[in-house]
Nucleic acid binder design. Structure first.
Lengths: 221, 221
DNA sequence: AATTTTTTTTAGCTTTGTCTAAAATTAATT
DNA sequence: AATTAATTTTAGACAAAGCTAAAAAAAATT
């Protein structure tokens, strides 16, 4: 595996994440995600195409090549292992780890990451509930359902929170929702998609569709 | 404390180290240390002078300002804490930690470093025996004597190794000399400055003046 | 003191990654 | 189908950090 610049790595990672939504990623979507300009994206796409990390025809969008996907998984592995370390060992709260891991993930010594993995005991999920790829780039899928799609009255456990903006994490903290929280849906309001949910030993309350779409839950323990 | 680029930080740190030898640092010395060209050094010196991190008059060399020294100590703190972490927790051998810490030291979240410090139990010395500045930038001096200046037959303990080139560390490993090694000098050869030293339960052997000058020892426990 | 050598600085060029403004292409609408 | 709108790309500029080659200053020699 070659070595890539911080900038290149950020582009690769962002494309990987956008590809979870749409097979084909567009210039504007990527510019948006990275808070940069479409022209900059086009420049970088040419470069990454040259390095055979993605497939790209002008005006047609792009998607990662096999090699690009490997690189992306390696970056994600680094990111999530550091997140786990920060939360588990340094006692950062789970909503603070993302930002710091954004910097640490670019330190790319393979030996460092593999030793960190050993030290942490090969954790399978990061503090947000996202799976951590192993040193071969494999990660478990965790069979989750979007909270917005969970049937009424079916108990479930929060396993993953996708959009990690500070504002959203603030809201979650206020509602006492975190990874591991047991809850069930009591009622769905089709008018605006909002949900009435209930946590153990608490009165039910309502959350927006927007929030529910960013929370993923599993069944059973 | 403002934020500085990786490049700026490397210059600041290198100047700090060179100042241990000579109050005033020259362009060539710094270029040499950083494996860059004198012209690049001059460019950066102008920049750092503008940022008030050092005193510099063209052709007159340079030295860190108070602010520059503070920044340098902060970088050194980060570097040495990571070195300690790598050796102590991740089980890197003490001669591997420097290189990895060179990258980690530039991740500059104050919160991260202070939490790391807590987690490690406020270590006072890194795996090379160098003191770690605390969060206020203070570090203990450790009252050491250069092995080359140690009197004959006086038992001492290796506390610090200065020049950490791979070649030198290789030599040290071969001779079983490390931080904490107890030894004494049996004989000094004034012809070339070489020393006959003895370790516990081992036959005496000879080391060069060059090597002895890079090893520092303390007395007592 | 004058000349040579060494050191340092300046001037100008390169690469990486960004930007704006304009041109080209594709998509949407009338 | 033709026109308008949106998206994407190109062209050209800029800042950071490096380089080489030449000029300037300081130090060392004769």
């Amino acid at each position: 595996m070659l070595n890539y610049s911080t900038s290149e790595e950020n582009y690769i990672k962002a494309i990987f994440h956008l590809q979870q939504e749409h097979e084909n990623v567009t210039t504007n979507a990527l510019a948006d995600k990275l808070k940069t300009r479409p022209a900059s994206v086009t420049d970088m796409m040419k470069k990454l195409k040259n390095k055979k990390l993605l497939h790209y025809q002008p005006y047609q969008g792009f998607r990662l090549s096999n090699e690009g996907r490997k690189v992306a998984l390696d970056i994600i592995r680094r990111h999530r292992l550091w997140e786990y370390f920060l939360a588990e060992k340094l006692k950062f709260s789970w909503d603070e780890v993302h930002e710091v891991a954004e910097d640490l993930e670019h330190v790319s010594s393979k030996k460092l990451i593999d030793k960190l993995d050993v030290y942490l005991g090969f954790p399978r999920f990061d503090p947000h509930g996202d799976p951590i790829p192993n040193s071969l780039g494999k990660m478990e899928s965790n069979n989750l359902v979007c909270l917005a799609d969970l049937p009424v009255n079916k108990p479930a456990i929060v396993n993953r929170v996708i959009n990690q903006s500070a504002e959203m994490l603030d809201l979650l903290r206020d509602k006492h929702i975190g990874i591991g929280t047991r809850l069930e849906i009591k009622k769905k309001f089709s008018y605006d998609g909002s949900l009435e949910i209930k946590l153990k030993q608490q009165a039910p309350f309502t959350i927006s569709k927007q929030l529910a779409q960013n929370i993923f839950v599993g069944y059973g323990s």
